[in-house]
Computed example of a mutant assay.
Amino acid sequence: MHHAEHVMGTVVSIDLADELPAPALQSMIDDVCRWLHEVDRRFSTYRDDSEVSRLRRGEIDISACSDDMRHVLEACADLWRSTDGYFDAYAGGPLDPSGYVKGWSVEVASARLAEAGSVHHCINAGGDIRARGLSRKGEPWRVGIRHPWEADKVSWVLSITDCAVATSGSYERGDHVFNPRTGSPARGLRSVTVVGPDLALADAYATAALAMGEAGLSWLAKMVAEGYDSAAVTDDGRAFTTTGLPAAV
């Protein structure tokens, strides 16, 4: 069963490949959509009534926040420390945890599907992807990583199962990732893709590496030991991958 949901400012594609009755699959999709809309209502920086907007304006403090908000803030603080400050929810000024929230919300959505009985599914939220099991063809899920200059082409095709893929780049949304050391838009890397076991971390690591610029290449190489492989393209068109990147033949 396939479903596309407009939420969080993007289209979220949900593919379930389990041999289960249609009503059961539809119930799983409905649950995922409710969750994603709940996340959007709570964390959208574009909604004046969202929890994060109220926190930014000082109308509530952390003690009055939801468990989910406290989790996200703690995770962002941990990532700030583990990336030497390059993942910074305050890099653009006011609090904006979006670089963690989308990946985290899809990771949670995939866990909810698994708990409900779906062992073969793929969720794609604007390039943030969490896959489990196999596609309906009985093969690993295939994911194309967009070429950073030519939108109708791909740089890599990945073959994945039971893992996450996150891509951060300047080619689609412009200067939305900042180097927190300089306060200026990130320069040096055009596109960063990270593959690993947890989408929340893969998404944050891709953002952090992009913010680092070319120094992010050596940092990404170190993350292989943590279970995260990567592919990156520099501003001048050079391409780099770690040895374990699950590129399709």
Rank of each mutant, 00 (worst) to 15 (best):
I129C: 06
D235V: 06
T45I: 13
P180V: 14
Y171A: 09
D128T: 03
G188W: 02
D175E: 15
A24I: 06
D84S: 11
A166G: 08
V154W: 08
L25K: 10
D162A: 06
P185A: 07
E115P: 07
D15N: 09
V108A: 09
R41N: 11
D88E: 03
Y171H: 15
D88W: 14
Y171V: 14
F240A: 12
D88V: 03
Y86S: 05
Y171P: 04
S105A: 15
K222N: 04
V32M: 01
D175G: 08
H3A: 10
Y205I: 15
D31E: 15
D15L: 11
P197F: 07
A131G: 05
F178G: 00
W219A: 13
Y86M: 13
P140M: 06
L220V: 13
D235W: 01
N179E: 07
H37C: 01
P148N: 07
M223D: 01
V108T: 06
P23S: 08
W149C: 00
R142F: 03
D40K: 02
A248G: 08
S170K: 06
A91P: 03
G138L: 08
G213W: 03
R42S: 12
A215M: 03
N179C: 14
R54H: 05
E115I: 11
R136E: 08
T207G: 02
P23V: 02
W156I: 08
A116N: 04
V32A: 08
D96T: 01
E150K: 10
E214Y: 01
S168H: 05
A22T: 11
A225E: 15
D128Y: 01
L36S: 05
S155D: 04
G133I: 04
D203V: 14
S159I: 10
G196T: 11
M1L: 15
S82E: 09
T207N: 12
E74C: 13
P185F: 00
W141P: 05
T241F: 00
W35Y: 15
V192F: 10
I145R: 01
K137C: 13
L95A: 03
C76K: 06
V192A: 07
D31L: 11
D236H: 07
C65M: 12
V7C: 00
L55I: 10
V52K: 00
D61S: 14
L217C: 05
C163L: 12
C33L: 05
D203A: 03
A166M: 09
Y90C: 05
S168T: 07
I29L: 11
A211E: 06
L201H: 01
P197N: 09
W219I: 14
T83Q: 06
E226T: 03
L217P: 05
A114Q: 10
D84T: 06
D198H: 11
R34D: 15
E115H: 11
M223W: 00
A89R: 01
H121I: 08
A17P: 04
A114F: 10
E115N: 13
S44M: 07
G127T: 11
S82W: 05
W156N: 00
D15H: 14
L245G: 08
R190E: 15
V32C: 05
N124A: 07
T243N: 01
L189T: 12
Q26H: 11
L113V: 14
L113P: 02
S110D: 06
E5G: 00
S218N: 05
R57K: 08
Y171R: 01
P97W: 02
D30N: 02
P23H: 09
V108M: 09
V108H: 09
E107Q: 15
T10S: 13
G244E: 13
R146N: 03
L199I: 12
A116Q: 06
K222M: 15
V32Y: 04
